[in-house]
């Protein structure tokens, strides 16, 4: 008879045991804030569909101190999402070869962050132009 009795260790709390995994869980949880913000926008869209009075009610809710705090939280969390999204990008995308050499991870992350900055500036400009 076999004397083997392989012991399987439990996975409970695995993500608390290594700083690398703690960071992973933090950047994964930014999704909650992305969802929260999308939900605020969804309510706004529904209010827009209900007419001017409903829309103005939503705008008014947005200018409350509570809303400001929530949006500051959204901003911090989603900024962190942006940073980590592009930080992971070098391992999630196929290698890019330029001039026979593989583009380094720093360049990929940097380009992503620059693209986000560019997208932000374009949106600011559009709001100025269309909304001014």
């Amino acid at each position: 008879m076999s004397k083997r009795r392989p012991y399987v260790r439990p996975m409970e709390g695995w993500w608390k045991k290594n700083p690398y995994f703690v960071e992973y869980m933090i950047h994964e949880s930014t999704a909650l804030f992305v969802a929260g913000y999308a939900f605020v926008l969804l309510v706004g869209l529904v209010r827009l569909g209900q007419g001017e009075a409903a829309w103005n009610g939503w705008l008014e809710a947005l200018s409350s101190p509570f809303s400001l705090i929530i949006h500051l939280l959204f901003l911090v969390a989603i900024l962190y999402h942006t940073y980590t999204w592009f930080k992971i990008m070098p391992i999630t995308m196929p290698p890019i070869i330029v001039g026979g050499k593989k583009v380094g991870p720093g360049v990929i992350t940097g380009s992503g962050l620059l693209a986000a900055l560019g997208a932000s500036l374009v949106m600011f400009a559009l709001v100025f132009w269309l909304g001014g």
């Binding site: 901003l75 989603i78 942006t82 999204w85 986000a116 997208a119 949106m123 709001v127 909304g131």
Partner: peptide
Amino acid sequence: SALFGPALVFITGIAVPFGFILPADAMSY
């Protein structure tokens, strides 16, 4: 959300509702 998220939150949740940097009527009906 990585590309547009932070700026969108700033525009719709902070700048426009509080008339901060951006015009306050940018999101009028």
